[in-house]
Amino acid sequence: MPEYDIDITLACETEATECGSGARKACDSKETVIEAPEGHVIDDRTFDVEMLVERGSENTAPYAFDNYISILEHAPELKYPTTVRMHVHARSSEGRCAGGGKTEARFFGNYINYERYTDMFKDCVIPTENS
């Protein structure tokens, strides 16, 4: 298995659906927020999630990127996030006395050291329409 800069597993598990009322249970893990180290951004093009356990009627593992910055002065449209937020959600099974729900997911990805690219391209001249 490859090694990643970000590699975290989140889980939540519910009790079984109630027998009398059929009321289902739900859970959400605590939101986890990861900030890229100084001089780095999160590679949102390769970040991924792997569902490890999906039990019950609902299983989700949403994540969202935030705090985008431009990493190259000559290409301001090239932006990457410095923050990723993630959590998991589970809901127990439908039906009276049905089983509980559980979601377990692995979130993984890498950082990009943008300072390396800034130094590499600092003397580049980008052609314009007038040049």
Rank of each mutant, 00 (worst) to 15 (best):
E115H: 10
R106E: 05
K30C: 01
P62F: 07
K25F: 08
Y80M: 10
C124L: 11
T128R: 09
T14D: 07
K122N: 05
I34S: 02
D7Y: 11
N130G: 08
H89F: 14
G39D: 13
Y68D: 01
R24T: 14
R45V: 00
L10I: 14
N67P: 00
I126Q: 14
G95A: 02
D119G: 07
C12H: 03
E38S: 10
C27N: 05
I34P: 00
L52V: 14
A105S: 11
T82A: 05
N110D: 09
A90L: 07
I42Q: 01
L10Q: 10
L10V: 06
G56F: 09
G95L: 03
E115P: 00
T46L: 04
I6S: 03
E38K: 09
P81Y: 02
I42S: 00
A64F: 04
N59K: 03
P2R: 13
E31H: 03
H40M: 13
A105V: 11
G99Q: 05
I42W: 01
F107P: 04
V49A: 11
I71R: 09
A75H: 13
K25A: 13
S29V: 02
S21Q: 13
D66P: 00
G99L: 02
R85L: 04
P62W: 06
A36P: 01
A98L: 01
E13F: 02
D43S: 15
Y114K: 15
D44G: 06
V125T: 10
V41T: 07
G20W: 11
I42P: 00
E77Q: 15
E15K: 13
N130K: 12
D43H: 08
T32L: 15
G20T: 15
T9L: 08
S93Y: 00
T128F: 08
A11K: 15
C19W: 08
M86R: 01
E129V: 07
C27H: 00
S21C: 10
T32M: 06
E3H: 15
R96S: 10
A16E: 14
M51I: 13
G99A: 15
C124V: 09
T46V: 04
D48M: 10
Y80F: 09
E13D: 12
G109Y: 07
I112Y: 05
F121V: 05
S92K: 01
